[in-house]
């Protein structure tokens, strides 16, 4: 439970930041290049899972606790609904109305730029937060359970 060998720890301490940055890139550029909130969120979760496998559970728990990740999950879901609801009270009253694009960006030729497409990047961020936090949460819960379980019975030690 104290993590893997020194080789794995060193390599994963170099690689973790790159994976995290790649996840953020995928989320932010989701409306221009392949990717988006779903893929980026899963990549962000996988960077934390890498830390959990390499350094052990306690190390990750100090950085991002169980309550914090469940709160991030709720924040992502509520942010998505809030963005959708703003469209209802802003001009043409309809749910999921792309108000930023229609009101400010439509006549400015913002194609292929980072600031374009109105609410789509904001929704991507919300979805990425939600997917990443919830997948990290479930793998964390499985890890806690499995380790307790292993203490009782026969152990084929993985970590």
């Amino acid at each position: 439970m104290k993590g893997m060998t020194i080789i794995v720890k060193t390599i994963s301490s170099w690689v973790k930041l790159l994976i995290f940055l790649f996840g953020i890139y995928i989320v932010l550029f989701g409306h221009l290049t392949p990717g988006g909130g779903f893929a980026g969120g899963v990549i962000i979760a996988s960077s934390y899972v890498l830390l959990m496998l390499a350094f052990g559970r306690e190390f990750v728990e100090k950085n991002l606790s169980l309550t914090a990740s469940s709160r991030l999950d709720c924040v992502g879901a509520l942010m998505f609904v809030a963005i959708a609801l703003v469209g209802m009270f802003y001009g043409a009253a309809s749910f999921f109305w792309n108000f930023i694009h229609q009101q400010y960006l439509a006549d400015r030729a913002t194609e292929f730029k980072l600031v374009s497409a109105g609410i789509i990047p904001l929704c991507n961020i919300a979805i990425g937060l939600k997917v990443g936090a919830s997948l990290f949460l479930v793998i964390f819960a499985l890890s806690v359970f499995c380790n307790d379980f292993r203490c009782k019975g026969s152990a084929r030690e993985l970590m």
Binding site: F38, V42, S134, L135, V138, L142, F149
Partner: peptide, 20 residues
């Protein structure tokens, strides 16, 4: 399909927790 894949991971976690 993009949404369906991520839902598949969630339901896989649910099924595995039932198994455990």
């Amino acid at each position: 399909v993009l949404t369906s894949i991520v839902i598949g991971l969630g339901t896989l976690a649910l099924l595995i927790s039932i198994c455990i």
